[in-house]
Nucleic acid binder design. Structure first.
Lengths: 203, 203
DNA sequence: ACGTTAACCGTACAAATGTACGGTACTCCC
DNA sequence: GGGAGTACCGTACATTTGTACGGTTAACGT
């Protein structure tokens, strides 16, 4: 019943604090840490707020576990990696709002990387020599970029479902699309390209 | 003394587990959670491992605080499955030719990431929304891609040394190069772009 | 042979932490 | 006036959790 009701200002404060802490410190606060932030002396008070937030579907908690608050939704304000300029990165070090990681960005499970050869996807910024981060899955939506296996060879192309079957669309005018009639030949989708990594002028 | 020595395989396991948990669950594990994951029955054992990791500068802990492990560096680890076709990634699991790591590819020190805004470097495959991996350094070679700070604003451009000074060259015909006469204005190089990461159509 | 180190075990204890219970004050609404 | 909801206070208690201590085993190098 109390499902989708609006948050009270106080509850919003609690939620914001939880978000800030999780983002900045990489871990949720304890009940008493929230207490001191709210200038509240009783853990019971905060406990009540958390119960309310949980009932409303904003958070999830483990029973009797320290720092077990888990955010289910998020309130505006996404503090990703600051692309807001204004400052100089070398001075903005303390503001790091998390890490870029492969596992962080993409989630460690079921993700692997493939080296990219050729320029057939140049149009969307996937270049020869890049690594494509691929999530293993047998189907992708029309328009998504897929790692496809055709007659034993794998390619990365934009996947487009057509009337007769599937079209693998390169992103480069000098390449021709590959049309595949459903049920013909050996074709399948190995995964969806969820990311790109490139190493530049290293040496 | 034990500062920069290599991690033992066991310590690496611990660190990996901590990373996975923090990434996936949004909170670091407790000592005993690590215990069960390692199939170890004594919290003391894990405590020792954590002490070692802390001494080696990989983590940081708060005294007597639950789930207070904080990662200072990271192991990235995503398997790289060869670019040689021949097999299908899902079946070629054992063939992995190593791992992609941020720290591995770029070296953990002195590297940070910036969000990229705008399409001025589209021509070389750096797109709006990408993360640029930048190594902090005050000078770059002609032709390299630099993160430059010009009058307090930072941009990513190709760095070209000219007779009068420096030219910041976009990789997009609709943008004009920026000419900088030596000794004029507030200009400096913040770092060199050594890599690109992109996250595509998440979820 | 000896010391060092990594990796364990068990157990015990104190601090941190989540939770429960009863009570107060205020607002809003029927 | 009475009921319901929010926001608090204190206090107490049981778990969870970090940490300490002593002991064991195996590998490695001198």
């Amino acid at each position: 019943m109390n499902d989708q009701r609006q948050l009270t200002p106080r509850q919003k404060e609690v939620l914001e604090y939880i978000q800030d802490e999780t983002d900045q410190r990489q871990r949720p606060p304890t009940v008493r840490e929230i207490c001191t932030h709210l200038n509240v002396s009783s853990p019971g008070t905060v406990h009540d707020h958390l119960a309310a937030l949980e009932r409303a579907g904003w958070i999830e908690r483990g029973r009797n576990q320290a720092r077990s608050i888990r955010l289910l939704k998020r309130l505006g304000k996404v503090p990703v990696l600051g692309e807001v300029a204004a400052g100089v990165p070398s001075e903005a070090e303390e503001q790091h709002m998390g890490f870029i990681t492969l596992t962080g960005l993409f989630g460690a499970d079921e993700v692997f990387a493939v080296g990219v050869r050729g320029d057939s996807m140049m149009g969307c910024g996937i270049l020869d020599g890049d690594y494509a981060i691929v999530r293993k899955q047998a189907e992708v939506e029309t328009g998504e970029i897929a790692l496809a296996v055709l007659n034993g060879e794998q390619t990365i192309k934009r996947f487009i479902r057509t009337e007769q079957g599937v079209r693998l669309q390169p992103e480069n005018p000098t390449f021709k699309p590959i049309e595949i009639v459903a049920g013909t030949g050996d074709f399948r989708v190995a995964g969806k390209v969820v990311g790109i990594m490139r190493k530049l002028g290293s040496r």
